[in-house]
Simulated assay, not measured.
Amino acid sequence: MVHTLISVIVPTYNEEQNISACLQSLNRQTLPRDSYEIIVVDGGSKDQTREIAAPFADQVFIQTSKKVGGARNDGAMAALGEILATTDADCVLPGDWLERIRDDFAADPAIVQVYGLVYPIEDSLKNRLSLASANLFSRIGYHTRTLYYTLGCNTAFRKEAFMKAGMYRTIDAGDDLEIARRTCKLGKVSLDSRLKVGFSMRRYQQFGTLKSLYQWLYIVVRGGNSEKYSYSQREYKK
Results as ranks from 00 to 15, higher is better:
A107E: 08
M163V: 15
V40F: 04
P11V: 06
C153H: 12
A54P: 00
T209E: 09
R158Q: 11
K67S: 10
L129H: 05
Y218C: 05
Q113M: 15
L177M: 14
P120W: 02
I19H: 06
A85C: 12
Y218T: 03
V41L: 05
Y119H: 12
F61P: 02
L23H: 04
Y214K: 05
E51M: 07
P55K: 02
D104N: 15
L210E: 13
A53L: 00
N135H: 05
L210T: 09
T64V: 13
Y148R: 10
F157K: 03
L191K: 05
T49W: 00
R145S: 12
H3T: 14
R102K: 13
S138N: 11
R50Q: 11
Y36N: 04
L217H: 05
G81R: 05
A134R: 11
E15F: 06
D103T: 10
R28K: 14
V118R: 10
A71D: 11
M163P: 05
Q233L: 02
G174E: 06
D123I: 11
S138W: 06
A173S: 14
S200F: 06
S212W: 01
G44M: 00
T12F: 03
E160G: 07
D123C: 05
C22L: 12
S226R: 10
A76K: 00
W216I: 08
K66M: 05
D175V: 12
T150Y: 00
G81W: 04
R72I: 15
Q24R: 15
K196G: 07
Q24F: 12
D176M: 12
R181P: 03
I39W: 05
R194N: 14
C91W: 01
T209G: 01
E16S: 11
L80V: 14
V10L: 10
I19Q: 06
E15Y: 07
D88R: 07
Q29R: 00
S138E: 07
S7H: 09
M1Q: 12
T4G: 06
D172Q: 15
F137K: 08
R181G: 09
G198W: 06
V40Y: 05
Q48R: 09
V92I: 15
A107H: 04
E235A: 10
Y149D: 04
Q48F: 04
P109M: 12
Q233H: 15
M77Q: 14
A79P: 01
R181M: 13
P11H: 04
V60D: 03
A180G: 12
T209H: 09
D192K: 02
W216Q: 09
Q206P: 03
T64G: 10
L125R: 13
L210S: 11
S130R: 01
Y236Q: 12
L136M: 10
V10K: 07
F56L: 09
N225I: 08
P94T: 06
V8H: 01
N18A: 13
I179N: 07
L31R: 04
S200R: 02
T150F: 02
C184W: 03
F162A: 11
P109H: 14
T30Y: 02
S25T: 14
H3E: 15
A165G: 04
D108W: 01
P55I: 01
G81C: 09
A85L: 11
F207C: 03
P94N: 08
S130D: 04
C153Y: 12
T150N: 09
A156F: 03
